[in-house]
């Protein structure tokens, strides 16, 4: 099991955004480190959950892996090949095997294109099937994603948010990809629909042997679907481990506080809550040492100066904290 080569390998990924707003009198170039030295691997067949608050770099990591955005430094290997060094032609070939599901089901569909065409166009453009075969295939995928055959000639505005997200998923899986990055696919939906979409993701994974990178800010959503979880804070991984490890035995204070904030729908349950003080620091000017020390209830002197090492505390459970 351990010898198997990972499907995706992210090595020391860095993505910096330069703010080059220069005025005549002032010349300050602030650099926002959206993703700062992140490394992890995704094994075939697993669902890797990536959690963090807004602006922690979750989406940037997802987009970088599929090369929808350029990276500043580091390397991303997909089946051993460096994604960001592929030629245009090789990249086009690779696009067949990894796909993206977008966050906003409303803006991710072109309002002027019938959904049948939207789902099938990738097959057409890559020359993988004839028009007739494509229609068959689209109907099959619609069915797989819980949509009706007569939906095929409708326009996006005739669908609800949940249905649109199903369309987005159908568009992604029609190419029979192996790997799907789902960027907050349920955060735009209400709770009852969220459950349906998550179940759809699980069903498809079973049927098609898919591997997911599932990005979310909602820990309870990730708990349902992920097999391993990475916790991001200000562009840096704080903790990484199997789902059970993270949820049963969180080691990083940030993870602990996040988990204690999940509402439990039972008023009789009493528990200790860790309420963080203050706001997320400005990513253009992140704290020195451990990035979390400004809000950490257990911070010590050491945390302010020394960046904690991302170390393996237990088997396959990594934490970046001086206290562990």
């Amino acid at each position: 099991m351990d010898q198997k080569e990972p499907l995706v390998e992210v090595k020391n990924l860095k993505k910096h955004y330069k703010d080059s707003s220069r005025s005549l009198f002032k010349r300050n170039q602030s650099v926002v480190k959206a993703v700062d030295n992140v490394s992890f691997t995704i094994e075939e067949g697993e669902t890797f959950g990536l959690v963090g608050e807004s602006g922690s770099g979750k989406s940037t990591i997802g987009r970088s892996i599929l090369r929808l955005t350029d990276i500043t430094d580091g390397e991303i290997l997909y089946k051993g090949k460096s994604v960001h060094q592929l030629s245009k032609q090789e990249l086009r070939e690779h696009r067949k095997s990894f796909q993206f599901v977008f966050q906003d089901p409303f803006s991710s569909l072109n309002p002027r294109i019938r959904i049948g065409d939207a789902i099938g166009e990738a097959l057409l453009d890559h020359g993988l099937a004839t028009k007739k075969e494509i229609r068959e295939k689209v109907l099959e995928v619609l069915n797989l994603c819980g949509l009706a055959p007569y939906h095929i000639d409708r326009f996006p505005h005739e669908f609800s948010g949940g249905q649109r997200q199903r369309i987005g998923i159908a568009r992604a899986i029609i190419m029979d990809p192996e790997f799907i990055v789902a960027d907050e696919p349920v955060s735009g939906l209400d709770v009852s629909i969220q459950a349906q979409i998550i179940n759809l993701f699980s069903d498809l994974q079973e049927k098609k042997q898919l591997t997911y990178l599932f990005i979310s800010h909602d820990l309870s959503v990730v708990e349902h679907i992920a097999t391993r979880v990475g916790v991001l804070y200000l562009g840096t991984l704080m903790e990484l481990g199997s789902r059970d490890e993270i949820y049963e035995n969180p080691l990083h204070p940030y993870t602990k506080s996040l988990l204690s904030a999940i509402p439990i729908p039972d008023p009789t349950v009493k528990r200790e809550r860790i309420v963080l003080q203050g706001d997320v620091p400005n990513p253009a000017n992140p704290p020195t040492g451990c990035k979390f020390h400004t809000r950490c209830p257990f911070a010590r002197e050491k945390c302010k100066t020394i960046v904690p090492e991302f170390k393996e505390v237990e088997a396959n459970h990594f934490v970046a904290c001086h206290l562990v």
């Binding site: 990249l91 690779h94 796909q99 991710s108 990738a122």
Partner: peptide
């Protein structure tokens, strides 16, 4: 810059 254009990118369309 619309998301559906990013989608065409991720689908690898010409």
């Amino acid at each position: 810059e619309r998301e559906y254009m990013h989608a065409t990118e991720s689908l690898g369309l010409r």
